[in-house]
Amino acid sequence: MLRTDEKIELNEKTVPDELARRKAGARRTAWIIAAIAAAFFIASLVQGHLVGIPH
């Protein structure tokens, strides 16, 4: 079990690489979410063009 000061020291050593890894993950997340947003936009146009809603 590491003491708190040892944990912090370990953190400081691994921070830059860990942060870079997480930021790469964030970029992947961003592209996936952007693709979902684009899909909603296209779906609304397709719905407008093809379907309509009877009333």
């Binding site: 979410i33 947003a37 909603f40 936009f41 146009l45 407008g48």
Partner: peptide, 14 residues
């Protein structure tokens, strides 16, 4: 926001 703002964009584009 991700789900509905593009739908508004679709509505105003039409």
């Amino acid at each position: 926001v991700i789900a509905v703002m593009p739908v508004l964009a679709g509505a105003v584009t039409m």
